[in-house]
């Protein structure tokens, strides 16, 4: 399936709850509210054979935390991105870990680096962040490497 076909399918199924943008025949960006994320992911995985969650991106934008789930389809050049904007500072989103095992680690990583709380995630321990940084969110705006190192008594740089 090409990007615009998937986009039309999503529009039919979700109506005004999705906002579809076709960037190119192989890149599709879909805006969707956080509550609809699991349903949209289920729709993609059941309508596109070989569809898998490739990865997710968390990004601290000016108006909120952007949470982008990138879905790839085996055997095709298509990448579908579900984009959600989460409100700061709490940033809560439903977890996709129940839909697909691929979401497990990447959601833990985003939780570590950006502090997004994934509701319903089976395992909320740290994955990539060191213990010394347990209270820090290094990918949030305003995180300052030099100030952080000074606070924990590290010498910054070489």
């Amino acid at each position: 399936m090409e990007a615009h076909e998937v986009g039309n399918g999503l529009r039919e199924a979700f109506g005004s709850r999705v906002e579809v943008a076709v960037a190119s025949p192989k890149r599709l960006y879909v805006r969707v509210a956080a509550v609809d994320l699991p349903e949209a992911a289920r729709w993609l995985r059941s309508h596109l054979p070989g569809c898998r969650l490739a990865t997710s991106t968390g990004i601290d934008l000016r108006d909120g935390i952007g949470l982008f789930h990138h879905f790839a389809v085996n055997g095709q050049s298509l990448v579908i991105t579900l984009k959600t904007l989460l409100e700061k500072p709490a940033a809560r989103a439903p977890s996709l870990a129940r839909e697909t095992a691929a979401a497990d680690w990447i959601e833990r990583e985003i939780h570590d680096l950006l502090g997004v709380a994934f509701e319903g995630h089976p395992d909320e321990r740290r994955l990539v962040k060191a213990e010394a940084m347990a209270d820090e969110l290094p990918l949030r705006r305003g995180f300052d490497v030099a100030r952080f190192k000074e606070r924990i008594g590290e010498r910054p740089g070489f």
Binding site: N74, G75, T100, A101
Partner: peptide, 26 residues
């Protein structure tokens, strides 16, 4: 099925019967 659920890629996926390779797909 597990390979698809975990979203594995490359030789790990191709050894499990998933014909996926970006060089061919895109």
């Amino acid at each position: 099925e597990a390979a698809l659920d975990f979203g594995v890629v490359g030789p790990t996926a191709r050894a499990a019967g998933l014909a996926t390779d970006v060089r061919r797909d895109e």
